[in-house]
Simulated scan of single mutants.
Amino acid sequence: MKKEVISDKQGISIVILYMSGTSTIVVFGLLAEMDIWIANILAVSFAIIMGLIIGRIQSSFHGEDIFDISIKCYGRFLGGIVIILFAWFAFHEATLVVINMQTFIIETSISETPYYALTIPFIFICAWAIKEGIELIGRWSSLFIIIFIFSVISIVVLLIPEMNPSNIQPILYNGMKPVLRGTFAAFTFPFGEIMMFPMFLYDFKTNKSSYKIYTLGLLLSGVIIIMTSLTTVLVLGVDVATGVYFPTYHAVKQISVLETLQRMEVIAALIFLFGAFLKISLLLLGVCKGISKIFNIKDYCFIVIPIALLMINFSQFAFTGRVVMTHWIYEIYPIYTFVFEIILTLIILIPVEIKRRRMRGRTT
């Protein structure tokens, strides 16, 4: 495989779009209720610490992905088990994005369209993108990020007349427990997913680029998510926001300027679809790289289509219905993802730190 190096700007753009691209229709940290903004600030703070940890791991193995690092830390057998866990988590996350994308389209626009008519073309576009490589995705992200940020800021500004400050008052009315629950939920999704980036982002220009990309990317995406989440609660209120599947999308529908500027939710929907495209593409890339590493395949490209088809099929029977999926996401998903995001990261970090200390001891 050819070596693909991305610039810091492209890397930051990828992180921002990955983390906040779906925030145009959903709200993160709603378990915190009126104090959602506090929960998101705390979640971003913890995520930046996570980003520094990931940057430290990658700076110790410059130019190598998390799969090579796993093998170097634990050997072929134990490292292979770690790779399987990373690949499974990426596969499952991508499947959830596929389900959300398909559900959103059906519930908001074309409800009679068959599932596969929507999903197959979308996934095949993602498969084509990753066959072209991470450099293509990086260039696309650096261009689209301008449109994305401008659109988000415009939506927030246009919704100012619809905001009601009483929807977030009084502060800490129910104490810290809801805030902590919201923080945990927002950290596990989407911020904790920063641990998956070493699957597909590893050929940086400098050894310190990972620190800059992850910290700045998380900070900026956090600002965007705080803006959109807070705006949604200010416009709809906590009760309405928790009662609909895509609250930010419903909030954007409130925009009406002089009865001429309306239907802005179309822009929000398009941004979400572009964000879903990026997220599925990167996760699919991570899965294919992990599987190719397990079976010692030099080029991952020829397994992209089979994995994509498997992802489509798995999305069909992963949940028996929307209600079951919603219950799983709110009650089980945070704990499930915590195991992968924190425990797997620590599994990699511990031998990396041992290696760094040994090398430091030899030089003194």
Rank of each mutant, 00 (worst) to 15 (best):
F314C: 03
I291E: 02
I145N: 01
I54A: 10
A276L: 11
I255R: 14
Y74W: 10
I41G: 04
V339T: 09
F317K: 07
D203T: 13
T242W: 00
I120L: 15
F67V: 10
L30F: 00
R322V: 12
C126L: 02
R362Q: 09
T320Q: 07
H62Y: 11
T345P: 09
K131E: 12
P306N: 01
I343P: 04
L158F: 15
P306F: 04
S141P: 04
E259M: 05
F122E: 10
I297F: 08
F314V: 14
L118Q: 15
K355L: 11
I106V: 12
I134L: 03
S20T: 14
V157F: 11
F200G: 00
F148L: 07
L218N: 05
I120P: 10
L52F: 14
G29V: 15
F89W: 05
L52H: 13
A43S: 13
K212L: 08
H62T: 12
F197W: 06
T232L: 13
K289A: 00
L285Q: 12
M1P: 11
L85E: 07
I53L: 15
I348H: 08
E33Y: 01
Y249F: 15
M176G: 01
F274S: 02
M34W: 00
Y249V: 07
K253P: 08
F28V: 11
L136Q: 08
M199V: 02
E64L: 10
M19F: 04
S111K: 02
R357Q: 11
A308D: 08
